[in-house]
Nucleic acid binder design. Structure first.
Length: 511
RNA sequence: GAGUCGGUAGCUCAGCUGGCAGAGCAACGCCCUUUUAAGGCGUGGGUCGUGGGUUCGAUCCCCACCCGACUCACCA
């Protein structure tokens, strides 16, 4: 929307005029700073700040608060309004005779609007109805808003419930103008606070173990580490094609070759695929690689870390997600993939060849494409019959080798690799292997991927010669892990859509 | 990509069978010094998502398109 005369709303025009008037009376509508001494939450939590009736004014501690005017009740020469800061809301009482006639009548009453950001200095008292309130001795406009903010009204009903009127609910508007969503919907601020707490809990957990947080390239000449369609870009000076990473696995493993015992990275990854309530083109994963460990050790680690996260966020191992209660208390069940499939479908697919798998898939009404190999067919059956039923956190272990070109062969079971996924609420939240460190085997796996690509599988991995070279210099036995941060955040915050845990989800432009 | 539903004032929403565009809050003017959806009296505010069509006349009916939500299919 442009600010041309014809397109601004009536209310916008009125505020532009108010801004002009403020400038003419030399009341700066955008001053440079304001000393804030207290926040709303602190004041409400500290009743000793409240002025007692018998107390002299000089003895009372002064507070200065700042924030946005949310509601206003003007009663002539005095006014109550609610001020919202980063921690919550507090009521302010302001009187003409305390803050000055011009300041009150003109600047505050005439030229200040709901939504404007103001600073207040004064003391804390309790009103006749018992509400802790800041009594304003000084009032200062800190930022004049030009657009009306869609502030909802709240009222407490007789049975003590809070009823909200005119809530800002339009999802499209909320996603496009997240800043307004955050101003107006406190539960949205909570969700993002929890997301940040979750990441911090994980970071602390890994730091406590002595693992090192690192940064690896986002722009990669060869994309790898996952099966996905990449975004492509171009470097002008080098005149070369570059890809936005779809994963950072191969770089972190190079660092394990380099001698670190444990490295991890919270990484934005990019996949050029469809959008849905579980998929955003850019999303966050944490990947962790630990030397001298295997996937059994990693299962223990994941259980401990996620249990720790649940406790850090909710003070308990249980989390309410929709109408399900999910309990992250360890240990979690560990079920080999083929056993899980047999349990749900009655079919034992272990050791079956391609034509037998195709037959089984048809009996199970799975639609197949010609390019599907053994791994893909098994994955389809698993995704259809098993995954959606796994609500409580569960490790599915020992995947077919065809699905996992970077995982080490199983030490006992032919045709399988030492890989697990953690499924929770019907979705994968973690994926891990005993990492393949045999450079000869790894080269063969890449070559197999090349054959799959030639047969039409566009997501098959590309051979990364430099990575192979790194393995040829020797990588210790290593356990590797990836956890989908957005997915885990959805579970931990009981959010139905990935858009609700991303500040700025991908949207089409409005026009 | 397919299906369903939606887009009307700053916000939340009505709008009948096609006949001058409505409400509450917000805004504007006046009154009001312990209110809390404060209150009282009064006033203004609209590209009805966009573009066509039918019609004397379209927010309403028809066609196309844009944007979104949800469901389904592929990827985490």
């Amino acid at each position: 929307m442009s600010n041309t005369e014809s397109s601004v709303s009536e209310q916008h025009k009125i505020r532009l005029e108010k801004l002009q008037q403020l400038r003419e009376m030399e009341a700066n509508p955008y001053p440079h700073s304001f000393d804030v001494s207290h926040n709303s939450q602190y004041i409400l939590d500290h009743p000793e700040l409240i002025k007692e009736d018998e107390q002299e004014l000089e003895e009372v501690e002064r507070v200065s608060v700042a924030g946005r005017i949310m509601t206003r009740r003007i009663m002539g020469k005095s006014t109550f309004f609610n001020l919202q800061d980063s921690k919550g809301e507090i009521q302010v009482y302001i009187r003409r005779d305390d803050v000055g006639k011009e300041n009150y009548n003109k600047v505050f009453k005439k030229l200040t609007d709901i939504g404007d950001i103001v600073g207040i200095k004064g003391y804390v008292f309790k009103t006749g109805t018992g509400e802790t309130t800041v009594y304003a001795e000084e009032f200062k406009l800190l930022s004049k808003t030009l657009r009306p903010i869609p502030i909802p009204k709240e009222v407490e009903t007789e049975d003590g419930e809070t009823k909200t009127y005119d809530a800002f609910t339009d999802k499209e508007q909320r996603y496009r103008q997240r800043y307004l969503d955050l101003v107006v919907n406190p539960e949205v601020r909570d969700v993002f606070q929890q997301r940040t707490s979750m990441v911090q809990a994980m970071r602390n957990f890994m730091n406590d173990k002595g693992y090192m947080e690192v940064e690896t390239p986002i722009l990669q000449p060869i994309y790898g580490g996952a099966s996905a369609e990449p975004f492509v870009t171009h470097h002008n000076a080098l005149d070369m094609k570059l890809y936005l990473r779809i994963a950072n696995e191969l770089y972190l493993k190079r660092l394990i070759v380099g001698g670190y015992d444990g490295v991890y990275e919270f990484s934005k990854d990019f996949r050029n695929e469809g959008l849905s309530r579980f998929h955003n083109p850019e999303f966050t994963q944490v990947e962790l690689y630990v030397a001298y460990k295997d996937y059994n050790w990693m299962m223990d680690f994941v259980e401990k870390m996620v249990e720790h996260v649940a406790k850090a966020l909710h003070g308990s191992t249980t989390v309410q997600v929709g109408d399900q209660e999910i309990d992250f208390k360890r240990p979690w069940p560990r079920i080999p993939m083929f056993e899980a499939i047999e349990e749900e479908t009655g079919k034992d697919l272990y050791g079956k060849d391609l034509s037998e798998l195709k037959e089984a898939a048809e009996e199970l009404n799975i639609e197949l494409e010609d390019s599907f190999g053994k791994g893909k067919i098994i994955d389809e059956i698993f995704g259809e019959y098993v995954e959606p039923n796994l609500i409580q956190p569960t490790f599915i272990t020992d995947y077919p080798i065809e699905m996992s070109p970077l995982a080490k062969k199983h030490r006992e079971k032919e045709g399988l690799v030492e890989r697990f996924e953690c499924i929770c609420n019907g979705k994968e939240i973690a994926n891990a292997f005993s990492e393949l460190n045999d450079p000869v085997d790894q080269r063969e796996r890449f070559e197999e991927q090349a054959r799959l690509r030639a047969d039409g599988d566009e997501e098959a991995m590309t051979l990364d010669e430099d990575f192979l070279q790194a393995l040829e210099y020797g990588m210790p036995p290593t356990a590797g892990l990836g956890i989908g941060i957005d997915r885990l955040a959805m579970i931990m915050t009981d959010s139905e859509s990935i858009r609700d845990v991303l500040f700025f989800p991908q949207m089409k432009p409005e026009k």
